[in-house]
């Protein structure tokens, strides 16, 4: 994999967005609160605590070392943040109180915004999910599950259908989405928020 930013000149597609910041500073700036990313001492408590760590390309510790080494393309194409299950075990165990789970979210948003990253199932799931939230103001389990299953799990569509049928017969799923009343208000808020995000 090529590193697109020249370390001496900092020339590359990132240079405008980084605005003279290191990659670590850039991630910190985009994470609400004090993420404490620069405090990582590479102890590995995070990876050792992670329930899905065995399926990750890199442990959180490795990923943070890669951030420090400015390996942006490798970081953004790592499956690590997408395999984070948001259990916050690493966050509460980290001796340096690095907000690891929050940082994983930030890295996901950076990957989504970057045209060089590869699509993946997790990312498509998130984007389909928020598509429904943007359109209705509510999540829509039936639409999400069926659309996602058809495009990403063609081999297990039967299992998904059985599950969906079970939820329907147990009166635990609706075929139509629920829409909030003041959707225009929510749309304005989200639109403005996305504009602000683009400026970061």
């Amino acid at each position: 994999m090529t590193v697109l930013v020249d370390r001496q000149t900092k020339k590359g597609p990132w240079v405008d967005q980084l605005k003279g910041r290191t990659l670590i500073e850039w991630v910190e700036d985009r994470t609400p609160g004090d993420s404490r990313l620069e405090m990582c001492i590479q102890c590995g408590t995070c990876g050792g605590s992670c329930p899905s760590g065995q399926d990750m390309d890199h442990t959180p510790r490795q990923l943070f070392a890669m951030l420090r080494a400015e390996l942006e393309e490798e970081v953004l194409n790592s499956n690590t943040p997408w395999f984070c299950v948001s259990c916050y075990l690493c966050t509460v165990r980290c001796p340096q109180e690095v907000k690891i789970t929050d940082i994983m979210y930030t890295i996901k948003t950076l990957a989504v915004a970057d045209p060089r990253t590869h699509a993946n199932t997790a990312r498509d799931f998130s984007e389909t999910f928020i598509g429904y939230v943007d359109r209705f103001g509510r999540s829509f389990e039936f639409g999400l599950a069926s659309r996602h299953a058809l495009s990403h799990m063609p081999n297990s569509v039967q299992g998904v259908m059985e599950l969906g049928l079970g939820l329907l017969t147990q009166r635990r799923m609706d075929l139509t989405p629920t829409k909030i009343k003041n959707l225009p208000q929510l749309s304005k808020i989200l639109h403005r928020a996305k504009e602000l995000e683009a400026e970061l």
Partner: peptide, 25 residues
Amino acid sequence: EDWNCCGATEYSAVNRIASHALVGR
């Protein structure tokens, strides 16, 4: 009254500010 989705673990994976604005409403 007229609450909206909290974004679950998905919105903050795509748009950080918007995910919190969603909850902010």
